[in-house]
């Protein structure tokens, strides 16, 4: 079966299942000739995320899958992605009641009553993979960076653990992994998306409430998503060039 699968992926041009092929590709990248690499083309992609609040049901699948796929600690303060529940009274949108029990890892036990006149919804959160990332700006050594294909990554062998990036992220998307004493954050499942797969959170989202998109691919449905909906990003006043685009984002969301 494995052979069939490889064949299939090759035919659809997705490839890069083989670690051997990946290594070969990287020889070209390291030689400064990425264009000759046979597989993933670094400069042909510009990754973004389409989030649809109207679809999120707060099941927590994304949170669990992220921790599983990326080996994230199960601690209550280590999340690459998490889900928030908002409880907003229409006459007081400035003071939403928000919770995220264990990041939404175990879902959301019912807390509010229907018919109390409030507005209730879930907001999935993750690294916005900003094009002008404040976290990248402040890293003193270049241990966190924006990859040429638009992903904010961490070089765990180079990170000092100074935590300046944690302070600089307006969205609270970074934490220190106590096992490595380096910073950790969403990698947009870089190991998956460079093999033609989607991220773990998108893979398991039953509602399609989050969808990985490639802005450089004219055929990617993210273009329709951005065109057909009223789109907002988190904290636009921070001018971070956030690339997690939300449909149905309420003004009360911080």
């Amino acid at each position: 079966m494995e052979a069939d699968r490889r064949e299939f992926l090759k035919q659809t041009g997705l490839l890069l299942v083989l670690t051997g092929a990946a290594a070969q590709a990287w020889d070209f990248v390291l030689a400064g000739e990425p264009e000759k690499a046979p597989t993933y083309k670094l400069l042909d992609h510009w990754w973004a995320m389409a989030m649809d609040i109207r679809k999120c049901i707060g099941c927590g699948n994304c949170v669990r899958a992220c921790k599983t796929e990326n080996g994230v600690l199960l601690e209550p303060d280590c999340f690459r992605t998490w889900v928030e529940r908002y409880h907003v009274h229409p006459d007081d949108p400035g003071h939403p009641e928000v919770d995220s029990p264990n990041g939404g890892y175990g879902g959301f036990p019912e807390k509010y009553k229907a018919g109390d006149g409030s507005k209730n919804f879930f907001v999935p959160k993750m690294c916005n993979h900003c094009a002008h990332s404040p976290c990248v700006q402040v890293c003193p050594v270049g241990a966190t960076f924006e990859s040429p294909d638009g992903v904010v990554l961490v070089d765990k062998t180079y990170c000092l653990g100074c935590r300046y990036c944690v302070q600089a992220c307006p969205y609270g998307c970074r934490y220190i992994d106590p096992r490595t004493e380096t910073v950790d954050k969403c990698s947009l499942c870089y190991h998956r998306i460079t093999k033609g797969l989607t991220t773990a959170c998108c893979e398991v989202c039953p509602m399609g409430a989050r969808k990985l998109g490639d802005l450089k691919d004219p055929k990617d449905p993210i273009h329709d998503f951005l065109k057909d909906h009223m789109i907002h990003v988190l904290k636009p006043e921070m001018a971070t060039g956030a690339k997690a685009y939300y449909n149905g984002l309420d003004g009360s969301v911080r």
Partner: peptide
Amino acid sequence: ALADNMAH
């Protein structure tokens, strides 16, 4: 570091 991230 790109390769490191890919290698996961």
